[in-house]
């Protein structure tokens, strides 16, 4: 699934200049940027892949694709540290650097004809959104589609308007659960795996796409295995420290895998032993 990305001929370490086309605040600490190349065409990218976004003098962070238009990549960034802070502060017109796309994609072609279960925790919905959009754009190619979303509290739900549209779409089952409810919330409370029995899918013919905190992905995968979804059709998107994204810096190793080139999207059957080891 991994493929060498088109990298500027000046070397895989040198970013390409991009510009912010639009910036939208999603949540208190989360911003979505539409970014386009300063010159030339937008490279091809697949749902699940990521780019390295560079703020001059500050640094570079791995950010998954959260959507794309004809002319722009869309990235959703949570402000958690120096680099992500600088990225979330970029106004329209601001310059940044980009290397990518990198990494493996969600298996949207391989899962045709199957029921697809999408499980997102928190910001994990961002890397899944291009896959959801793809599934809905080619709805007839798939069986039953379910989207299960977990968030900390109701105001932490990402993309609420788009979720409402998806909910209105009768061909996609959507369920949302909260770690903690508030007075306004009348929906589910509890961890995401608790939603699994509510979704309608045929375990033997289901593919699961999961992205969120590692504990949530582990618990969800375990629950799916318990429901007899085959391990090789459970796909997780993993996160590790990344400095280069091109297999050269060593930081993203997870057992024998380099998350930047063998991931971030990995098959559960291939990583289950490594996921079971603490501090790997």
């Amino acid at each position: 699934m991994s493929m060498p990305a088109p990298i500027t001929e000046r070397g895989a370490f040198v970013p390409t200049p991009y510009r912010v086309i639009a910036a939208r605040r999603e949540l208190g600490d989360t911003v979505t940027l539409n970014i386009a190349p300063q010159a030339g065409a937008l490279p091809a990218i697949l749902p699940g892949q990521f780019n390295m976004l560079y703020v001059p003098g500050v640094g570079e962070a791995a950010i998954s694709l959260s959507g794309a238009t004809e002319a722009a990549f869309i990235h959703t960034i949570r402000d958690v540290g120096a680099i992500s802070h600088a990225l979330t502060r970029l106004p329209p017109g601001a310059s940044l650097g980009l290397r990518g796309p990198f990494g493996t994609a969600w298996p949207v072609a391989e899962t045709q004809g199957r029921d697809v279960l999408i499980v997102a925790g928190g910001l994990g919905l961002a890397p899944l959104r291009p896959a959801i959009r793809h599934l809905l754009a080619h709805r007839e190619r798939y069986g039953k589609l379910s989207l299960l979303i977990g968030a900390r509290t109701p105001p932490d739900i990402l993309y609420p308007h788009e979720i409402a549209q998806w909910r209105a779409n009768l061909d996609l089952y959507v369920a949302v659960t909260m770690d903690r409810a508030d007075a306004m919330w009348h929906g589910h409370v509890g961890v995401v795996p608790l939603l699994l029995p509510r979704a309608d899918f045929d375990p033997a013919n289901t593919a699961a796409l999961i992205c969120g905190p590692e504990v949530m992905m582990r618990a969800t995968a375990q629950a799916l295995l318990g429901m007899a979804v085959p391990a090789e059709r459970i796909h997780l998107s993993l996160e590790r420290n990344m400095k280069c994204a091109i297999g050269l810096c060593g930081h993203c190793q997870f057992g024998a895998a380099f998350i930047c080139k063998d991931g971030p999207v990995m098959r559960y059957d291939r990583i289950a032993p490594a996921l079971a080891v603490r501090e790997l």
Binding site: Y54, P56, G57, H251
Partner: peptide, 30 residues
């Protein structure tokens, strides 16, 4: 294994990215 550091030259405003050796024995590595 290597890491990177980003600097800005205060006089020219040029930014530079420098790569240096790193070690998997540091806490920051992971």
């Amino acid at each position: 294994c290597t890491t990177v550091a980003d600097h800005t030259d205060l006089t020219t405003a040029d930014a530079q990215r420098v790569r240096s050796w790193d070690s998997c024995f540091t806490l920051d590595f992971s």
